[in-house]
């Protein structure tokens, strides 16, 4: 599978020269299988440039939402295939205890917050509520599970037929409520089973270790926790992702290097920069 980072920023889109290398678009990752299956992971503002790469011949796209915080859905209304009547768009994501996914999304994709109603979109649109499930989408086998983040939030483990595993946990606080992280085994750690042995883990690394202490419970991880989570789950490569909007390129270079120095991971770290592509 080919994995491309189209938006790596957390919380809020951050245009600006000082953010240009890591990128300012919010969470969006494209996954293309060898047989042509296209998955879009989250619909942050990075989904707009991703859409420009989708070929005219494609007839189905699946968007896998981890949760419905604004930075993960803000680009949805600007996803060009939604306006093509010849395309099936399947949106997967978590409902809540009282509302289904479609009803939750309509709170944003309707006036006055957005000028177009979901029901007016010309594509063939289907919603799939998903929490902890296993599904097949084209050539991919996808496992989802609820993870630790405020509100219903899932992570995804995507397996290609050739055996490659991608795990996507963009908003995740596995250290919540744990005095020392990691102190519990993998099976007792949020997201542990999703990430176990993954070839590529894309994971929340919003804060520095110092910043995390003031943001405990906000649903995100420090870079050190992220790298330790990668060690616990024995991943082969990790992409720190969902960068804090206040972190410039210079800050991120320094913070990631510092986290690597302090945690000494025994696997590859590739900082999450917009436009980076991985072949798994």
């Amino acid at each position: 599978m080919r994995v491309t980072l189209w938006g790596t920023r957390g919380s809020l889109a951050t245009p600006g020269a000082e953010m240009a290398r890591y990128g300012g678009n919010t969470s969006c990752v494209g996954v293309v299988g060898r047989e042509g299956t296209v998955l879009v992971l989250d619909a942050g503002t990075g989904i707009r440039p991703l859409a420009a790469t989708i070929p005219e011949s494609l007839r189905r796209v699946d968007i896998l939402l981890t949760h419905l915080h604004m930075d993960h859905i803000q680009g949805l209304g600007f996803f060009a295939p939604l306006y093509r009547p010849d395309v099936e768009v399947h949106i997967w994501g978590p409902g809540s205890a009282t509302l289904r996914l479609q009803a939750r999304l309509m709170r944003y994709l309707s006036p006055p917050l957005f000028p177009v109603n979901l029901s007016e979109l010309p594509c063939k649109l289907t919603f799939h509520d998903i929490s902890s499930r296993e599904i097949d989408i084209g050539e991919f086998h996808v496992c989802s599970a609820l993870v630790c983040h405020p509100g219903p939030t899932v992570g995804y483990r995507i397996a290609a037929p050739e055996g490659a595993i991608l795990t996507y946990l963009p908003d995740h606080e596995p250290a919540l409520g744990v005095l020392r992280f990691p102190s519990l085994p993998r099976e007792w750690t949020s997201g542990g089973a999703l990430a176990a042995g993954a070839d590529l883990l894309i994971h929340d690394g919003q804060y520095s270790a110092a910043e995390y202490t003031g943001h405990c419970g906000w649903g995100h991880s420090s870079l050190n926790q992220t790298l330790d989570f990668g060690t616990l789950t024995e991943v082969k490569q990790l992409v720190p992702f969902h960068h804090d909007p206040d972190h410039t390129d210079t800050d991120l270079d320094r913070l990631i290097a510092q986290a690597i120095e302090e945690t000494k991971p025994g696997y590859q770290i590739t900082p999450g920069k917009e436009g980076t592509t991985f072949e798994l």
């Binding site: 902890s132 993870v147 744990v178 099976e187 007792w188 542990g192």
Partner: peptide, 19 residues
């Protein structure tokens, strides 16, 4: 190793461990 736990169980343990 025991089986992976659902997030609700993980959070229940975390809460219990602090009460």
């Amino acid at each position: 190793m025991s089986s992976p736990k659902p997030i609700q169980i993980i959070l229940a343990r975390q809460l219990a461990s602090s009460l």
